[in-house]
Design a protein around this nucleic acid. Structure first.
Lengths: 357, 357
DNA sequence: CTGAAAGCGCTTACAG
DNA sequence: CTGAAAGCGCTTACAG
C-alpha cells in the first residue's frame, strides 16, 4: 500500500504538500496539484485513516451503539440507522453500528479514542450507559431519552401517538381499552423509554375519561402475546380494544385472541351466524395502510407504534401509526450552544466543522 | 485522558515497560507490575487504540459489511451478526456492523487500514463487492457465497432446505407446488445466493419428480406478496402449496391468497360449510414451532427458509425451517492453508494469532 | 527484567 | 505556494 511519502517522492514534492491536496487544506498551484494527483492515481494511493486519526485526533467515525439483543432489528430501528448513516456521510463521517452489551464495553470503546461521536439506541429511563456517555469526553446524542431531558436527544412523541390511537378507538365506539406492553425478567424492557412513556400517557388518558386502566406487560415474543391474550380474557373480559406497544408479541397476541373463540367473518354477507368470539376481527394498521384492503390483515411488525384494535367498523384505510416525532426538538439547538467550550465537550451535538481539540 | 507516558512517569518506569504490562507481551517483575497497575488505576488509564493500531498495524476490529437496504434485519441475519460478534470478542476482536452502499465505499474502507478483517453479508452470485474484497489485502470471509466456491465462506445449505420442505409437502399429498421468491428492479435480489440456489434446487426437484416448475418472483414487500397471490391464481390455478423464499412478502402473500376467496375453517367441526377458498388454511412453520398449536398461525418473518403450505393436515408440531447449514464447511480449512504467504493474504480466513505484517 | 530509540503514516503550525 | 520538522501515542526489536 503506497504511502504519502511514496506519492511525494514520485511527484517531486514534500509530504506536506501531498497532505494539503489530499485534504484540500491549503491552496496548491495547479501544476503541482496535477503532478500529485497523477502520482496518487498511479500508485493507487489511499490515505491511511489510522495515521490520520492519530495525527489529527479525529477519526471521522460515529458509532451507533446498539445493545446486542437477540431480537431482529425492526423497521423503526432501521429507519433511525439509515437516517443516521446518511446524515453522517453527508457530513464526512462514517457511521458504524457497534453492538455493545453493557456500559463496561462502552467505556472501553469510548476511551479508546476510536470514535468522534456516539449515538445511543434503546435508551432506558434509568440508563447506566448514558451515565457512562456523560462521563466520557465523547460528544453524543440519544435516540430516545432518559428521565433527564436536558441531555441531547431525538425521540418519538409517545404522548401524541397514544393520543392519536385512543382517538381512533374511541371514534369507533370503544371504551374499555387495554394496553399491552413489554416486560422481561431483567426489567430492561419495562424501563425502556417507549414502554414507560406510552404507559404513562395511556393511564393519563384513561384517568381523564374516567375509565379503568388495564395494562398487561409481557415478554417481547410470541409466547408473551399469547399470555397477554389469556390474561385479558381472564382479568379484563370487558375489554374490546387493545393498544399494542410490543411489536414482537403481536403474532402471539392475535393468535391467542383468535383461539379464545372460533374465528368468524362478522362482515361477510354469506355468513349468517354471528361472531362467535369477542375477537371476531382484528385489524393492525401499519405503514403501508393505504394499500391495505379495509378489514384485512395489515403487515406485521411494522412499527412499534402499531395499534391493534377490534375494528367492528373497518378502518377504511386510515393509518394510525405515523407517530409524530420530536426530530429537531428545540432541545438540540439549545444544547448546541451549551457551555463546554472547546474540544469534545460532553452533551454537545456533533458537528462536521468542529475544530480538532 | 492519561497517556502511557503519564503512567510511566508516575510509576517511575519507562514507557516500554508500561506497554509490556498493558499487553502482557513480556514478563515484568511483580513489584514493578504492581506499581504500574496502581498508576494506571489512579490515572484511569485507557490505551489509545488508534495509536496502538498505527504502531502495530493491527486494529483488532473486524467489519461486518452489510448493504444499506431499507429492510429490517431479520432473525437469520441477526443470528449471524450476534454469532460473529461473540466469535470476534472471544478472539480479542471487536465486531462492527458497517453499512456499505457499494464496492466503491467498501474499497475506501478496506484501504484505509481501519479493519483487520471483513465479513460480507447478502452475497450475490456475481458480486462486485467480493471482487473488491479479493483485490484488497484484507482477510475476509463471506456469509453466503458467489459462483466461485473456492473463496472462504459459510452458508446455509439451500439444497437440503428445499429437500426437507418438498418432502414435507409431498408427505402431505401435495404435487403442484410453486416457489415464490424475490426480485427487484435492479436485479439485486434475483442474484442473491439464497434466491438463485433455492430456485435451482426447486427446479431440479420438480424435474426429478416430473412436475411443472412454477416460479413467481416478486419484490420483497407486502405488495409483492399480493402480486404473487394474484399471479398464482391466474397463471397456476392447479397449485395447492407454496414454498416461500421471500420473507418480506409473506404477509402480502397470505393476505392475497385469503382474499382470493372467503376464509373458512375447514377443520372446525362447528362449521358445516366446505372451504370456500383453495387457500382455506395456511400454516407457516417457523423456529418456535414446538410451541405452535397445530394449524394455527406461526410467527411471521421467522427465517428466510420459512415454508408456507396449505396444510390440509395440521403440521403437528414439526419444524421445517431449521435449515441445515454449511458452517465449518471443509472449504474453510482447505483455504486456511491456501497460498498467499505471510501477512494478510486475500482469501485467508481470519485468525487471532496472525502475526503483524 | 528494564530502557533508549526508531518508527508506524499522517497533520499542522511555523518559516521562508 | 512549498517544505522542514515536531508530534500524535503507541509497539517492538535491540541492548544491557
Amino acid at each position: 500500500m503506497a504511502t504519502m511519502q511514496d506519492v511525494a517522492d514520485r511527484a517531486g514534492v514534500s509530504i506536506a504538500t501531498v497532505s494539503y491536496v489530499v485534504n484540500g487544506t491549503k491552496n496548491v498551484s495547479p501544476p503541482t496539484r496535477a503532478r500529485i494527483e497523477a502520482a496518487m492515481d498511479e500508485l493507487r494511493y489511499r490515505r491511511n485513516v489510522v495515521a490520520r486519526a492519530l495525527a489529527s485526533s479525529r477519526t471521522h467515525i460515529v458509532a451507533l451503539l446498539h445493545p446486542v439483543l437477540g431480537n431482529r432489528l425492526g423497521g423503526t430501528v432501521m429507519g433511525f440507522v439509515i437516517a443516521a448513516s446518511n446524515g453522517a456521510r453527508a457530513r464526512g463521517y462514517d457511521l458504524v453500528l457497534w453492538p455493545v452489551e453493557d456500559e463496561e464495553q462502552m467505556s472501553h470503546l469510548l476511551a479508546g479514542g476510536l470514535v468522534d461521536g456516539a449515538l445511543l439506541m434503546e435508551v432506558r429511563v434509568h440508563d447506566p450507559r448514558v451515565d457512562e456517555l456523560v462521563t466520557s469526553s465523547v460528544p453524543f446524542a440519544l435516540i430516545g431519552r432518559t428521565h433527564d431531558e436536558t441531555l441531547p436527544f431525538v425521540d418519538i412523541d409517545f404522548a401524541a401517538t397514544i393520543d392519536t390511537a385512543m382517538r381512533h378507538l374511541t371514534d369507533l365506539g370503544h371504551q374499555a381499552i387495554a394496553l399491552v406492553d413489554g416486560n422481561d425478567e431483567t426489567g430492561w424492557v419495562a424501563d425502556l423509554g417507549p414502554t414507560v412513556r406510552t404507559e404513562a400517557a395511556y393511564r393519563e388518558h384513561m384517568t381523564a375519561v374516567g375509565g379503568r386502566s388495564v395494562v398487561i406487560s409481557v415478554p417481547p415474543n410470541a409466547a408473551g402475546g399469547i399470555e397477554a391474550a389469556r390474561r385479558l380474557r381472564d382479568e379484563a373480559p370487558e375489554v374490546t380494544a387493545i393498544l399494542l406497544m410490543n411489536e414482537q408479541a403481536a403474532t402471539g397476541l392475535v393468535r391467542g385472541c383468535a383461539s379464545s373463540g372460533a374465528p368468524s367473518r362478522a362482515t361477510s354477507p354469506s355468513s349468517p351466524s354471528p361472531p362467535r368470539s369477542r375477537w371476531a376481527r382484528w385489524s393492525i394498521p401499519c405503514s403501508p395502510c393505504s394499500r391495505r384492503p379495509p378489514g384485512s390483515w395489515g403487515s406485521w411488525a411494522s412499527t412499534r407504534s402499531s395499534i391493534s384494535s377490534r375494528a367492528s367498523t373497518p378502518a377504511a384505510g386510515r393509518c394510525f401509526c405515523r407517530a409524530r416525532s420530536c426530530w429537531g426538538s428545540p432541545r438540540l439547538p439549545r444544547l448546541a450552544r451549551a457551555p463546554g467550550g472547546a474540544g469534545r465537550a460532553p452533551g454537545r451535538p456533533l458537528s462536521a466543522t468542529d475544530p480538532a481539540p
